[in-house]
Design a protein around this nucleic acid. Sequence first.
DNA 1: CGGTTGATTGATACACATCAAACCCCGTGG
DNA 2: CCACGGGGTTTGATGTGTATCAATCAACCG
Lengths: 243, 243
Amino acid sequence: MHADTPRRTAADQPAQRIATMLQLLQDALPLQKRLVHAGDVVCQVGQPFQCLYVVNAGFFKMVNLSDEGREQVVGLHFRGDWLGLDGIATGRYGCDAVAMDTGEVWAIPYDTLIEASIRTPALLGALHQAMSRELARDHDSMASLCTLPADARVAGFLRYWADAVSQRGLRADEITLRMTRAEIGNYLGMTLETVSRALSRMARGDVIRFKEKGRRDIQIPKVEALTTFMQQARTPSAALALH
Amino acid sequence: MHADTPRRTAADQPAQRIATMLQLLQDALPLQKRLVHAGDVVCQVGQPFQCLYVVNAGFFKMVNLSDEGREQVVGLHFRGDWLGLDGIATGRYGCDAVAMDTGEVWAIPYDTLIEASIRTPALLGALHQAMSRELARDHDSMASLCTLPADARVAGFLRYWADAVSQRGLRADEITLRMTRAEIGNYLGMTLETVSRALSRMARGDVIRFKEKGRRDIQIPKVEALTTFMQQARTPSAALALH
DNA sequence: CGGTTGATTGATACACATCAAACCCCGTGG
DNA sequence: CCACGGGGTTTGATGTGTATCAATCAACCG
């Protein structure tokens, strides 16, 4: 893993797309920039919908408060993602957007966005792409919730995270989860103990490694090993290796 | 349950919204109408994205072919819903849209829609609402997949279906599922046997009734009974009534 | 240093999957 | 007409993946 200068890797394309989109927004709109810290709530379920928020830095979880207080993480968002999209239809936000780290979001009043899109049609493209992408991502999440066993879901989660950061131009072989096991488990539909066990199994199989002093930083020597781990987790066949 | 003339029930508002939107599309766009029958594929995963489709009649399932052939139903769509939205971002459809009954969709080239939206801005509102609504719906699905036990998920599915048809102006106390138990189970992340058992339990508790000669038609005497059934299914407490 | 929060690991329980058998309904064709 | 076959559904017996309960441990912090 020598640090070769990355020229035009496959990950560059999304990075370019995100950078271009953020630039477009800055040029075409008066943005209200807002700094956030871990735990800050960007927009809250039930509040009247006014603004969309675009993530310029940091990362965020979307939390759905289902009926009686039960919290459910329904999405994770990184730089370039939009927050608050599910408020357009009803006029009220459908989720809390909670910062998991210090970061910055740009508030864009929806009305302003629509107006500006007359002069700058590319704004619509950006919005539509963001929504469409989230739809596709949600479908993938549902598929993995429905079909994959716990181990495979955790592996898929790590792969998703690694993809997300690598698409943003960061190194993906060493990720630092800014979520507790409980939050991960909530997002993946399992308990924190199951998350912990899955990670332990992956570490035992050398699919991942924990950085010394802290089990939040995870090294991923080979991202494709996650994929193979997912596949073999689906079949109970070769479960005998490493009891 | 005497047939009182429904004046301005709560369900009228969505019905009005859908009718208005369909009218808007007809007035503002040259629509390519397309009749479909059960099993027809409206748009197929991997095909280049050109058109969005709006459901004018019938009902549709969205199927995600995950990696190796494994089919996953990720959404159900009724009159007024849009199909193919997850193709905007990538330029290729992300799901198959399969008709579950005879129906009609209106094909709308995306480019045409965007152009027309300059003259008729309301078109954008319709598109954005459709996408936003689906996002919110997906989040609800994820929450129920993650938190609810099988019985509650099935009950929630019936309630969702009943809501959907009642919002389209049809009677909701007697719904005919046009899906097999296997399809329902696939959508809800459980096996067909579990779906069957859940329905049997609900029938035993008189939450639903099967119409004679055929277990696809389900009577729902009181829709709110589904909600209470969901809640008591979540707590293993009162599970002793009716072994 | 104790106190707190998060993580790991083990023992046990249970919800659901799996396997299997029987049934119902419906269309087809002798 | 009934025999036959096949897809869909129901129900039961058994197995298993994961939740639950509980104890221990590691890191952080005032």
